[in-house]
């Protein structure tokens, strides 16, 4: 329960629904925008199985324990007690360092492949062919089988150990040691998260989070490198954070096509194209906002809207400039939010 406290704030009461939808990867442009505002988009899709009922029960328990409090009927904010609990939790538990990688890789499949990889390379290093293969999906087994056929003549043990040592050098020694205890190999049996927790004084959940964090970071590490293991990870890397259809819309936009042209080429409604471009504006670095917002519109926006971006309202714009669309207003908010983050 306390794990969720880090997503709440003392002064933004509308967070609860956005938190749930970001964590469980329920994408609407509105959710993504507010996820961006609350700086929690790195956690997108970290918990795809999170059910609404379970989440609501946790929230209810936090309210009951006075960690969260209702603010003027608008939503829930952290109380002083909640903030202390959040800080205390962060101090004694493992904190995920690269949550954003979760939406970049097919995590479950990669973890299966990684466990298998370490096991088969370890057994091969000892010339052993008789062993119980670690529990894993068929997809993972197929993928490893094909890879092994191509590379079995290499010095696999040497090469994999080099990659692991290079990668783990940048982690704390304790984290690295725990990570390596979760693998299986020749006459080497892993420990369960529960057993490591007993030995280290951490919680079982901490160990699971550490495994998720470091295993995906290792995938990213291999992806960036040139080792023979890279080919195992590349097919698991998601090409981008945009949905398939939004990717196509953005491709056309980036090639210089106008919104009107994209609409006709793709046979989409203008509002759908607008949604796709807003999604792209949120996720794509260096998105070209200037093609969609004219200099005059920039000037109007900058005069009208100052201060906390959360408090800008489209209604205020409509009072004086009823022809400027909501999409342009939101694009401006996104651009300013991104600039604010860079600063």
């Amino acid at each position: 329960m306390d794990e969720l406290l880090c997503f709440f704030s003392k002064n933004q009461p509308r967070r609860p629904a956005v938190i749930r939808q970001v964590l469980s990867n329920k994408r609407t442009v509105s959710n993504l925008f507010w996820g961006l505002r609350y700086k929690i988009l790195d956690w997108l899709a970290i918990c795809p199985q999170l059910e609404r009922e379970k989440f609501d029960n946790l929230i209810a328990a936090m309210v009951q324990n006075k960690l969260l409090a209702e603010i003027n009927g608008q939503g829930l904010c952290l109380t002083e007690l909640g903030a202390r609990r959040r800080d205390n939790f962060a101090e004694i538990h493992y904190h995920m360092k690269s949550p954003y990688l979760f939406s970049r890789f097919k995590v479950q499949l990669w973890q299966d492949i990684l466990r298998l990889l370490v096991q088969i390379v370890s057994e091969a290093s000892y010339g052993n062919t008789h062993y119980y293969v670690v529990a894993s999906s068929f997809q993972a087994r197929d993928s490893i089988k094909k890879w092994y056929q191509d590379y079995h003549e290499c010095e696999l043990g040497q090469l994999l150990s080099e990659q692991l040592l290079l990668f783990l050098k940048n982690e704390s020694a304790d984290d690295a040691t725990i990570f390596m205890q979760l693998f299986y190999g020749h006459e080497y049996v892993a420990k369960t998260a529960e057993q490591i927790a007993v030995n280290t004084g951490w919680s079982t959940r901490d160990i699971e989070v550490l495994w998720n964090d470091l295993s995906v970071k290792f995938a990213d590490f291999l992806c960036e490198g040139t080792s023979i293991f890279k080919v195992l990870v590349i097919p698991l890397k998601k090409t981008g954070l945009l949905s398939k259809s939004a990717t196509e819309t953005y491709r056309l936009y980036a090639s210089g096509m106008t919104v009107a042209k994209i609409k006709s080429v793709r046979g989409l409604k203008e509002s759908t194209v607008a949604e796709h471009l807003l999604e792209a504006a949120i996720f794509v670095p260096n998105f070209n906002f200037k093609r969609l917002i004219s200099p005059l519109e920039y000037s109007i926006f900058s005069k009208l809207f100052k201060g906390n971006i959360d408090n800008w309202h489209y209604e205020k714009l409509q009072e004086t400039e009823p022809k400027i669309s909501f999409t342009k207003f939101r694009l401006y908010q996104i651009e300013q939010s991104k600039l604010e983050m860079v600063e």
């Binding site: 370890s122 420990k191 030995n199």
Partner: peptide
Amino acid sequence: NFDDNSYQRVIRKLFNL
């Protein structure tokens, strides 16, 4: 009890180095 080794030792053992 389980042996508690550093990660470097575990890697060396795993890959027979």
